[in-house]
Design a protein around this nucleic acid. Structure first.
Lengths: 213, 213, 213, 213
DNA sequence: GATGAATGAGTGTTCATTCAT
DNA sequence: AATGAATGAACACTCATTCAT
């Protein structure tokens, strides 16, 4: 119930809720999917009871973290689409920038197949994902029209490649890792740019081909 | 200690050892790093006691799985280097082909930072890794000499990119996932081919820049 | 303390108090002695805080429920004694009729020995119980005088037998259960009637022999 | 699995199993249905893990306790039926004697409706119960033929009455309680004996009328 | 007074590891 | 050597009680 209508919470409860979500996201990434709930609560500065009042069990917490960060990713993608002149730049910006985006793209690799399935089945998550796909789809088309993105890739291919890239992000970033990421992204972007190379095998993948990411 | 000298084992014990290693590798990939030891034993068709006789604890088992698969990857890379005419083809073949290679490249994403650190510290693993790097280094140089691989990438960049690619492999592969993998690989290879595009940022990464992979 | 002087409460507070007591009695019988306090509050339509304002802890609530229902039982027994011509009929009526009586007789079977001990030690409960015993004692003597009740039973035996009978009442009554109860009562009453059978073993039990019921 | 084939266990494991069952039965009666599992394990002299290896959860343990004691009750009833000259004596003996019988008759009062339902649904328990009913049915008929048991009661009435009687047994027996039990039993037996009193209301209840006991 | 959010101690259950058979 | 039973520490989750709003 709480999770369903976060707006209705008392001010302090809402603060706790946000604190827990942020802490949990970090904890999952740093310590894996089995961080003790007590550890999450401790880091968030609340008692376990409070954590459980907001999220009835671990799965509910995971779900909420995903929803939260996917929603943030959607917001950023829309901003990028609205603000960037070039669709290419909007694509690059919307799919690599924020911590939230990185988190969302890495979460499926953290959790067990069963939980990933639950995540994909969640109606709220599906809804946000659908909206996000609409935005990316638009950018892909615009970028192909402006001649910057090769014509034989689809939204699915893009999401897949950026997923791969961001999943590789070190848990504890350091300079070398940043350089490696930057260079890997450059190689991939080079591969994505419109140019006269060989066509890709198969057909452009749509986002629906790739439900899982 | 048994683990130290697998050659000395009785025939049935050696069979058990191999069965356990194979089962554990699969179990880690399918069920994640927290598969109960008892589950691994059960799937391998032995009692827990037997599992513990071969591997004194979970960490020892993980280590042995990594060693085992890294060694297999080395063997394959050498085969590819020896058999392929083109260094480019040897690179592609040695870094994408086998289940063992995929496993090795995915293992660091499965385990907690602490275990990954232990893996990287293991002398036997360091030794195999060093030999593997020698092989890849040679292939990179040959490929750049034959003009197929762009000159501004290093062995580290390559390992990084292939790691990213193979980490993305679904636990339960299906056709779409296979196509997505193939296409992503094609984009990356396109990005890696020698061509007249922009230079990559930074300097070519060596394998030592990238200890973790 | 609120619990000590329920007469002094504001009208709405008194209403809450009565609602909580009634709900708790039902909840204990339906869901057992461990119904969460929050569940009781919810069913009573109040917040937990309100429940705790009226009854400082679970034991206090249990005690109040027992007091409440024991008092109602006393009232009914007095009515029966006053209204029935035959002492026998007054006995039967006063000890089988009401929900409150059934509840009171079943409560000791619901709670742990420790709580039962606390219940028996409560001065208010002892006082009501004493008055009730006076009434039953009188009825027993009158019934034996009128020749309807066998002479070798005491008030303790009677209370014991009726306790046994009413404890057997199903939580979810149905027709068969009602018939079974009626028939069991008939057998017991038959056994209690003055007749020429064997004497009972031992001596008539007084109510004080049987503090616990 | 373990619970299903207790014969296959190693000698020490079987000893543990029996110890746990005996301890649990006692613990449920003394401390109620929520005795900590750890407490049961401690009293049985084993670790919690051992308890859980034998019985996967609390419900399984409860079920096993019921099965165990119901089976013992059946054995005793058969012995009584075979050994006693008079069916009346066999009835009295088989339905009042043993600790196991008392336990079985009290267990339904200890546990929550949900668990009681599960108990009644258990196929093994239903089977034993059916056999027990056959034995009692035979005794009832024999006793009515020999003229000792009134003709207007059925097996269901008998089981009901003895259930009521034995449920009343104090958790911590003392002399007065023993006397009270003995006297209550005498009253009920008096009520059950063939004599010229009023007929019981309704019709004789069969055991199937009374599934719950 | 009433509310319901926060707390944390208590308990069920799992699982890595040890050890008797 | 192999087996699987026993152990107990660790973690998920619940709920009595307190306290800020």
């Amino acid at each position: 119930m709480t999770a369903g209508s976060p707006e209705r919470l008392r001010a302090d409860a809402r603060r706790n809720r946000r604190k827990i979500l942020a802490t949990a996201a970090l904890a999952f990434v740093e310590d894996g999917p089995y961080v003790p709930m007590e550890e999450i609560a401790r880091r968030a500065g609340v008692g376990v009871g409070t954590l459980y009042r907001h999220f009835p069990d671990r799965d509910a917490l995971i779900m909420a973290v995903v929803r939260d960060n996917l929603a943030a990713t959607l917001v950023r993608a829309r901003q990028a689409a609205a603000e960037e002149e070039q669709a290419w730049d909007a694509l690059v910006r919307s799919m690599s920038a924020s911590d939230e985006t990185r988190l969302v793209l890495r979460l499926p690799t953290l959790f067990s197949p069963a939980i990933v399935a639950a995540i994909q089945a969640d109606p709220e998550i599906r809804r946000i994902r659908r909206e996000l796909v609409v935005v990316i789809d638009g950018l892909v088309r615009r970028a192909q029209n402006e001649g910057s993105l090769r014509a034989d890739v689809g939204t699915g291919d893009l999401i897949h490649l950026f997923s791969l890239l961001l999943r590789g992000v070190r848990r504890t970033p350091d300079d070398t890792a940043d350089v490696a990421l930057e260079r890997a992204q450059a190689v991939i972007l080079d591969g994505l740019r419109a140019h006269s190379g060989d066509l890709l095998p198969g057909r452009p993948l749509s986002a629906t081909d790739l439900e899982a990411e």
